[in-house]
Design a protein around this nucleic acid. Structure first.
Lengths: 349, 349
DNA sequence: TTATTATTGAGGCACGTGCCTCAGGACAAG
DNA sequence: CTTGTCCTGAGGCACGTGCCTCAATAATAA
């Protein structure tokens, strides 16, 4: 039926082949490949032409072997006890194993997310010989932005991680929070169905860019597709359970016609436990963010209708791949690295 | 003047270190590591002990370099013009680029999915020196199963791909189709809301294991959570648009109270186009499988409420990583390789 | 005992690249 | 002319592992 695969023993060309093709020595090829100076432009062009013609690609393993190079990446994460963060830390340790075959070391460094000055100082103290790259999860501030730029100038790869930074829209790992809010809105609206009423929105704080974007996306879809629903102003818990209890209880009392609740914060434990204590009607549809032990249990118990999530494992691995791409100066594939917005129902946990 | 090698933090022990620690020569270490015979059990144990104590891990890049080994993987896919398949083929070409740095070559071979004999013959003719591993997408038959086993015996890695094979539950790449059907059911039910009525189910064929499992999961959730909905028996299109038109039209006529449609087939083009032609009421909720240009457009047009999908890029990359894991005889990380059931609404395409 | 075999050690080359030294040549300025 | 600078080639070692040969020793059989 089918013909066998033709055996094309076309091995990859080496620097030796390159040298021969370009009519230069291997030393010169090496100078060009590694951007060392002391080579005429004419010679450089000749080598580059040969590279193109032969389709030469440098053997990274051999190169790394020769340099006995290894990658040492740092994940600078907030120090909060967030369950989502715990997931990420766990995935970093996993990634450690996966990438150990590639000489990649990952470490976690906890930082005080609310102290831009100390973050900046910390990043400024990093040494290129000790750290190859940094994935940074931190709210955007001028100090942090500057620190990132200075990192890059010193030859250390830097990558905004999960938490959005307005600059370098192409160089970051995380989801589109506007679309995430829109997705939450759509799912909530669909689950609520024909009923009309108001929708409660619970956030940790509306200071952060991420929260604002989610809210923006949420409202857009609400307005566009669910005119019978009226989203309330965002409640802010500030990560304080007592405060959460107060504002949520008050909100419930003031709005007896609540038919849906959107827990926008990445930490849903406090809001969920408060809602449980207040014995909120089960017919009220609830949506939260991020898959954690807490939200997973709530999903199974049908206490939550759905969870909008970003996959912590993908986030971590994508960050590692991109950091490596930066230091190796090769481009990473976009479609692989875009982090998708996941929807979890109780059937696909 | 040469600077002495700074006592680098001994990153990874080498075979030399191993030899010293075990009190044997490097040649013996090599014999043990590569499973060559002619070594006393006692010596083997001593080396293995040293491996454990030092936490030795073989440097795969160096090994591959020495062997000048490269991986050559074959994706054996059905020859149909399925859009989902086209996506997969496109992702394989992408993966080619990503993995080229690791000396991985991927090729696509189209097979006649309905001719188990020719598949078996094709697999049987593969030579280890030409093909390192095969990812096979094919319905389960005894011949194919045997061919897979014989492949493995000949030292060629084999991996069921997307299409389910009952054997080797741990060694395959794809989603849990039962859960996928359940998810479709839940999403459909939620979108339909309070309304009651019947639900149309369109399949390509109910012969395949995948279809049966999806249907099973679909019915389970329907029965459990949506008593007001009555799923109809599965329609079979056999990939034939004319036939699709007939059975769907008849089904619509016989059941005027249809409130939802579940397109179970991975190719939704024909059913969607038929439904469009028949000018089916837009209030009827529709769910389909797999993200393709067709379903994506339908989603954007709000013609489909949701799409249950498995990510083609992940499927391909996961297959490559697992094949590589098999030939390198190391275990791949489960959590990375499980393919998730994605839910796409128009907000998270 | 001797002959035979099994086990181990020593050493070396290879893979493809990075990086180093040294020498030869071209060229310009003095 | 010499002197100096710039470009290039030649050659070699290193990285860690696989694989080969050859000798040396230990264990076993005859």
């Amino acid at each position: 039926m089918k013909t066998l695969i033709p055996s094309n023993p076309q091995l990859r060309p080496t620097t030796k082949d390159l040298a021969k093709a370009a009519g230069v020595s291997r030393a010169t090829v090496d100078r060009v490949l590694n951007g060392r100076d002391g080579v005429t432009q004419k010679t450089v062009d000749r080598v580059n032409l040969a590279i193109k013609e032969l389709g030469f690609v440098r053997n990274l393993q051999a190169a790394n072997l020769a340099k006995s190079k290894s990658y040492r990446f740092l994940f600078a994460l907030p120090s909060s006890g967030d369950q989502f963060l715990q997931q990420i830390v766990a995935r970093i340790e996993e990634a450690q194993e996966i990438f150990s075959a590639d000489h990649v070391l990952c470490e976690v460094q906890h930082i005080d997310e609310n102290d831009p000055h100390s973050i900046s100082a910390f990043l400024g103290a990093l040494d290129k010989s000790e750290v190859t790259g940094v994935a940074l999860m931190s709210p955007e501030t001028p100090q942090v932005r500057d620190a990132i730029i200075r990192l890059q100038e010193r030859g250390i790869a830097a990558l905004p991680f999960v938490s959005n930074q307005s600059m370098m829209t192409d160089h970051w790992v995380g989801i589109d929070n506007r679309a995430a809010g829109a997705t939450a809105s759509l799912l909530l609206g669909q689950c609520i169905g024909q009923r009309s009423g108001t929708v409660m929105v619970i956030a940790e704080s509306m200071q952060s860019r991420d929260s604002l974007e989610r809210r923006l996306g949420f409202d857009a879809i609400m307005n566009e597709s669910f005119p019978q629903l009226r989203p309330l102003p965002s409640l802010e818990t500030y990560g304080n359970e007592a405060r959460a209890r107060d504002v949520i209880a008050a909100n419930l009392e003031n709005n007896p016609d609540i038919v849906g609740i959107y827990v926008m914060a990445s930490e849903a434990r406090a809001p969920l436990s408060v809602l449980r204590d207040l014995q909120v009607d089960r017919s009220i549809v609830k949506i939260a963010h991020e898959m954690t032990p807490c939200t997973e249990a709530a999903l199974r118990a049908q206490e939550l209708s759905g969870v909008i999530a970003q996959n912590p494992g993908h986030l971590v691995r994508s960050a590692v791949r991109r950091l490596r791409g930066i230091v190796d100066n090769r481009d990473t594939l976009g479609s692989q690295e875009s982090i998708r917005i996941e929807i979890h129902l109780r059937t696909n946990i």
